[in-house]
Structures are given as C-alpha cells and as structure tokens.
Design a protein around this nucleic acid. Structure first.
Lengths: 340, 340
DNA sequence: TTCGATATCCAAAACGTTTTGAATGCGTGA
DNA sequence: TCACGCATTCAAAACGTTTTGGATATCGAA
C-alpha cells in the first residue's frame, strides 16, 4: 500500500506537503497539488485510517446495540436502520460496530462495548421514557445521538418525528370527517413514542370535545391488535375510526372489522402511522391505507451526520431535529357513518 | 486514559519494559511484573487498540455481509449468527463490521467494504455452489472463513456440518424403520448446503435400493413446503416419510399431512434438520420432531477463532472442520405403515 | 581477576498520519 | 540595498504501541 512518504519521494516533496495537498489545505500551490493528486491516484494511495485515527485520537467507530425481542419482531425496523446507517456512516468515514442486547440489563451491552475502548459514540434507538441508557452514557461522558427522544426537553443530539403531532393530525382529520368515537391502538406505553402518541391523542380529542378514553396500549402484534379491536367493536358505542400505531396493527384492526361483518371505510375508518417498511406496505392494503408517513430510512442519514458532527465538536443544542409527518389520505378513511 | 508512559513514569520504568510486563514476556522479573500489573490496574490502563493496530499492521476488524431477502427470512439465522459471532470475536479483541447486501451483484458489498481499507478479513455465510465471493476474495488475497463450503474440496478455512451425512443419517434411520418411499423437501438447489443434501440423499437411497426421485428443491417457506408435500401425498405411491431441510419446512409438511387426513407418525413419518433456532423449536412440535441437530450457534465460536487464527498466520489447511450432526429421535417418526 | 553467561532493563526505531513552528525564495516598496 | 510581506515548502514532533538491538548488573566458573 502506497503511503504519503512514497508519494513524497516520487515528487521530491515532504510528507507534510503531500498531506496538506491531499487534504485541501490552502497553503499549497495549485501546481504541486495537481501533481500530488495525480501521483496519489497513480499509486493507488489510500490513507491509512488507523494512523489517521491514532493522531486524531478518534477511532472512527460508533456503536449500536440491537435489541432482540423474543418474537424477533425488531427485525424489520432494525434492518431498515442498519441498511441506511451503514451507508450514511461510511460516507463519513465511520464504521458501525454492532452488539446484541438479549434482554436483562439494558445498559450492559453499552458498558461492555465501552470497555473495549474503541468507540467514539453511540446511536441509540427505540427509547423508553427516561431511558436508562441515556443517563448511563451521559454520566460516562460518551457522545451519542438518539432516534426519537426519551423526555420532553432533551439535552442531547436527537432526531425524530413529532409523535404528538402524529396523533393530533390523525384525530384532526378523522374529526373533520365527522367521526366522534375514535380509538387509538397504540404500542406499549413504556416506549417513548407510544407515550407521546397517547398524549397527543388525548390532547387532540379533548380539543375536539371528544372522549379520549378509547386508547389501548400494548404489544404491536397483528393478533394483539385484532383482539383489542374486536373488544372495542363489541362495545355499545363502538368506535367508528381507528388510529393505529403501525401498519401491522392496522392489518389486525382491519381483519377484526371485517370479522365483525363491517366494511372499511363505509362503517369504520382505519388509519395508521407508516414507517415505510418494505414488508407491510400501506399502499398494498385493500383499501389502500390512509397514513401519517415518515419513512424510517429518512432518519438514518440525519442520525449518522448528527453523530459525526457532534463528535467533531458541534454542540448538542444545534443537533436536535423534529421532523413533521406527511398525511397521505387513501381509501381506508371516509366520512363517519350516518347515525353512528 | 492512562498510557504505557504513565505507568513507566510512575515506576521509573521504560515503556518497553512496561509493555513486555503486561504482555507476559519472559525477560521481565516477577517483582517488576507484579508492580506493573498493580499500577496498570490502579490507573485503569487499557491498551490503545488504534496504536496497537498501527504497529502490528492489522486493523482488528473483520467484515460480514448480511443478505436481506425480500421476505426477510434471513433474519432468524442472521441474528443467531450475529449474536454468537460478536461475542466470540470480542473475546479475541476483534470487531465486526457489517454491511448489507440488497441483492444484485453479490461481490459488490465486499468490494465496497474492501475499498475502505480497514478490514483484515471476512466471514462468509450461506454459500452458493462455486460462490463468486470466494473467487473474488481469493484473487484479492483477502483472508476469509466460510460457514459451510462452496465446493467439494475447499482450499480456504471453513467450518460446517457434513450435509451429505445429514441426508444419509436420515435416510438410514427411516429405511431401518421400514420406509421405502422417502421424500426430501429441500432448499433451493443453488445453495451449497441444498446441493450437498440432495447428493447425500440420492447416494443413501441408492445404497438402500430405493428410488431417489422424491426430492423437491425450492424456497424454504412454510407455505411452499405445504404445497410440495400435498403434491407428493396426492401421488399414487405417496411417500411414507419426509426429510425436511429445516423445521419451518417440517411445519408445512406436517400441516399438509394432516390436511390429507393422515397422522404423524402413524401414517407418515416426518423428520428435519434442526439449526436450533429459538423461534421454531423442534421439541415444540406435536408430536415432537425427530431431527438431525446442529445448532447454528455452535458454529460461531469456531468460525471466529478460525478467522483470527488464520489472520495470525495459521495456514488454511489446518483450519477446515466438518462437524458431525447429532440424531435425536422423537415422536414424529415411526415404523412404516403396514401394506404401505 | 577475568571471562562469559544470564537476567533484567532501556533507548530508539518503527508504523502512517496530522500539525506545529520555522525556513526558504521571491517580489515589492522605500 | 534593506526590510518586509507573502507564498510555498520542510523538518520534526506527536499519537501509543511493539520490537530491535544493545546496555548494565550480577553471578559462577576459570
């Protein structure tokens, strides 16, 4: 492998000048810069990352812990994140080291990864409210970026969507269509996103003068959503509209609606939040699913860039982004049934 | 972070001696070795891996590419491997860098990972026959270890099970129970393991004087196996025993057998090869599934160690292991039905 | 006493890069 | 001619480790 010294020897230049030339420093003449570039290409020069990292004091590696649920339902979102993150990070000369959380103490895998002493920072995802990993990494002084947020006013870099707005947008749209009894089939409440969605749901329902008590929190299985929806539909004043935390949940709800002999959207409207995962595509539903859409993949590049920027010294305050979600109205929602 | 120099300064020793003391070289006295150890612990010394890697010329990082199938069915095996490999590699001070293969050119992700110039080697899994990744990495001169093998006599480090023996063991057992018409529901034939299983199946059947034509190769979905089994059971001389490439396939076959109004193992025996994945447990079948068993997890530590050893200079010839599989007879197999 | 062997230690080089501080050459204005 | 600024380049230090090639002290044997 060609080194800076090789290039310097070839041209009669010092390694310092070669280094500057390649790194675009201003104090090197255009002529030598061109010559250096040319020989570097010709010799197939690639900077030795290990040497770069030794002198800069950074490892160029960040960590991520994937939590394996017993049902392996994390897979889909995880692969989506993994694909996007590795691509975005490698564009910033950063590598992603993975570890697996098999349950138990949530900070343990982070502690073990840290002990190896080779990581510059972490990417956290799927926060629970007041996430213990956040407090741990903060007291260790390790930089990290969080997908979403674990508290109302985070003081760390984070990127996510406005989950309260997800619920609010959904409620607003359904209320505008005349629905009065709207249910929320939510994820488990300890997940920060679910708590935010519930809060947004309650606020929006109250704002519209509607009873905010038709919210169900729990596991995001299709079968679980099916059961919850059946329970709600069996009530005297059954909901005429469902807001689902995910498209998988929407599938369960739709199945329940049909098993009750009802139609979508004639009798019941169904909408969901859509992470745009490849497997459960909202557009493949019949009828196509109305959604608040925020592709998970879109979060990867910002997350990667924010972490690298933060490692480069950018303060956390400048690295907090909350995205708006897009409302896409399709066939699964319609006016509230007459005399509902 | 404390360095060798810090420890040396504290004790009035040179960094060379401190380094030797910590690395267990013989030419340092027991007394100073103990003192060095003590101060190293007290100062919380951790070797700077980047510096180590610069001088040793190795990066301490190996790569693995996960292939995402459209149906994401790789997830289960992948997570199983990921869990085991990260643990085994970190015990050898090695990190795992992941990339994603989203289809298309199978060597592209390896090429891109290689261009970053930070990897010492690769772990390959799920080989197809005459795998193009093998030829690519070999002509690039990059060390790798393969889970399984892509040709009969591999010249690279590899670890796997004897897939021909998997079939042979299964056929032997079923033939011994009196079965004459035995079917193989196999994976896609381009996968090396499936080709080996088919070969082993044919050889064993012929050896027993049985017709080796009831083999079906294809996707490893439950539904696909169900369809294939139904087809075979509809034949005039339907099989009385099924050998399945996986427990998922066995589930489909069992469903087909029952939908035909037949019983397991009274009318039809069913057995499978079991990778011991957490989700589809052979023992949870009803009746519990007879299997040839070789936990996927068991391959992780050998694979990790073999790659690290190979990187350390051990020749490929010394790093080729083919494991035997374990036959576990449970309730899903029994004597062939009378007058079958 | 002297020689050689042995045990123990150290100084310095090396890995490939970035960065600091200084040097060189050149033109310009006085 | 001198001083000065500017553009361009270089030598050397630094990062933290491993490893090479001595150096020093100790001891036994001649």
């Amino acid at each position: 492998m060609a080194t800076l010294k090789d290039i310097g020897a070839e041209l009669g230049l010092s390694v310092a000048t070669v280094s500057r030339a390649l790194n675009g420093f201003p104090e090197v003449s255009l002529k030598t810069r061109a010559k250096v570039r040319e020989t570097a290409d010709r010799l197939g020069y690639r900077p030795n990352r290990v040497a770069q990292r030794l002198v800069t004091g950074r490892s160029g590696m960040v960590g991520m812990v994937v939590k394996i649920k017993p049902d392996m339902s994390a897979d889909q979102t995880f692969f989506e994140m993994l694909t996007g993150l590795t691509a975005a990070l490698s564009a910033r000369e950063t590598d992603l080291v993975l570890a697996v959380d098999q349950g138990g103490d949530p900070v343990l895998p982070y502690r073990k990864l840290l002990e190896r002493g080779i990581l510059d920072g972490f990417i956290l995802n799927a926060p629970v409210t007041d996430d213990p990993r956040v407090s741990f990494l903060r007291e260790q002084g390790i930089p990290f970026v969080l997908h979403g947020r674990d508290r109302a006013t985070p003081d760390y870099p984070n990127f996510g969507i406005d989950n309260a707005a997800v619920s609010a947008t959904s409620v607003d749209m359904l209320a505008h269509l005349g629905h009065r009894r709207i249910a929320l089939i939510n994820g488990k409440l300890r997940h920060a996103y679910a708590a935010e969605r519930l809060e947004g749901f309650r606020a929006a329902m109250t704002r519209h003068g509607l009873a905010p008590d038709s919210a169900r929190n729990g596991a995001t299985f299709e079968s679980h959503a099916y059961t919850r929806a059946l329970e709600l539909l069996a009530q005297e004043d059954a909901p005429t509209a469902f807001i689902c935390a995910s498209t998988v949940i929407a599938a369960g709800v739709m199945r329940a609606v049909r098993d009750r002999g009802l139609s979508v959207p004639g009798d019941v409207s169904v909408m969901a939040h859509d992470d745009a995962l490849p497997l459960t595509r909202a557009i493949s539903f019949d009828p196509a699913l109305t959604v608040t859409r925020a592709p998970l993949r879109d979060a990867c590049e910002p997350l990667a860039n924010m972490l690298v920027d933060h490692l480069g010294g950018m303060p956390a305050g400048a690295l907090q982004v909350m995205m708006d979600v897009e409302l896409i109205v399709r066939g699964s929602t319609g006016p509230a049934p007459k005399g509902g």
